[in-house]
Simulated assay, not measured.
Amino acid sequence: MEQLDKFRELMRRDRVFDFMMPDQMPAVDVSHEVLLYVEGLTVSFDGFKALNDLNLYIDDGELRCLIGANGAGKTTLMDVITGKTQPYSGMAYFGQTHNLLNKNESDIATLGIGRKFQKPTVFEQHTVFENLELSLRMSKAILASIFYRMSSEQSDRIAEVLDIIGLSKQSNQLAGALSHGQKQWLEIGMLLVSDPRLLLVDEPVAGMTPQETEHTAELLTSLAGERTVVVVEHDMAFVRSIAKKVTVLHQGSVLAEGNMDEIQNNPDVIEVYLGESQ
């Protein structure tokens, strides 16, 4: 009986073992207030330069919008930042010390960089809550998975994220039954529960209703400050509603940067996108 009691104590549901805990997220040096440094990036595919000596600097805590025509280099840039594509030349640093070009996709995610693709990818046969639980930052080792028990802190974190993304009432609903906009918010939530420092969000309002678009604008705006958010989007009305600073890419390079009024009145932007000069 004594041994049984000891075993029950060892395996109680609120116990979290050291080997089950995730690795600590590495510290990021933002002493110069810049979180992401991209300099001289060049990526070539069969002679086509998807990125052409691109320079970009994103401040810690800012919300930056990237715009540009198809083929301007937006997706390729995010591919490089997340380790999916290696550039021909250039550098990309996360803070002062983390060289992203020396790390694989998993290592980069561990640093605190999360990416949301245009098409939402959720586990449709699982509930909203279960989707968030599966995305928690935790050890994925075999023993950790066998003995996994959700802690009260993890449960509280999921509840907090559900409130942030506006899906608390849908917590027990299957993800497959959500609307398109709700699936987009759920995927953002799946990134948030892993506590990323930088969020890369690709066309978040494509296919949304006006009401869903408005909620998404409020959501992304609320995340900036505590986190850094980079949004790729073609909907200029949406960009205007959220952006303090916009970067325009053209043929793999930065064409212009500034607030939305400055961008819309920039002669180079007008000439490239409207086919006229000012």
Rank of each mutant, 00 (worst) to 15 (best):
S155I: 14
F147H: 07
L143G: 06
G166I: 04
S179W: 05
I142Q: 02
D107Y: 09
D163Y: 08
Q118D: 06
K140L: 13
T82V: 12
G83M: 05
T110A: 14
Q182G: 08
V128H: 02
F147D: 03
F129G: 01
S152N: 13
K116F: 07
S89W: 10
Q182W: 09
S155V: 12
S135V: 04
D107K: 14
A177T: 14
L167D: 02
G176S: 12
A141S: 14
L143R: 11
G112D: 03
Y148V: 03
S145D: 14
M91E: 15
V80R: 00
E153T: 11
A144M: 05
S168F: 06
S171D: 03
L101V: 07
F94H: 01
P87Q: 11
T121I: 15
E153F: 11
A177I: 10
E160P: 00
M138D: 09
I164S: 04
I81H: 02
S106Y: 10
P120A: 10
Q96F: 03
E105D: 00
I158H: 01
N99W: 05
D163R: 11
L178C: 04
R137W: 11
M91V: 11
Y88G: 00
A175M: 02
N99S: 06
G83H: 06
G95T: 05
E124T: 14
K140C: 10
F117T: 10
P87V: 12
T97H: 13
G114F: 05
I113W: 00
I164V: 15
R149W: 09
L167V: 07
E160D: 10
M150D: 08
L143T: 09
M150W: 11
G176V: 11
Q96A: 11
K116N: 06
S171R: 12
K103M: 15
Y88Q: 09
Y148A: 05
H98S: 06
R137Q: 12
E153G: 07
T82N: 07
G181H: 02
T121P: 04
E105Q: 11
T85M: 11
E133C: 03
S179P: 01
G90H: 08
I142Y: 10
D163K: 13
V128N: 02
V80A: 04
F147Y: 14
A144E: 02
E160H: 04
Y93K: 05
L174K: 09
I142L: 13
S106D: 10
Y88H: 00
K119Y: 08
L132P: 00
Y93M: 07
N102H: 13
L111T: 02
K119G: 06
S135G: 13
L162Y: 05
E130S: 00
V122P: 01
Q182R: 10
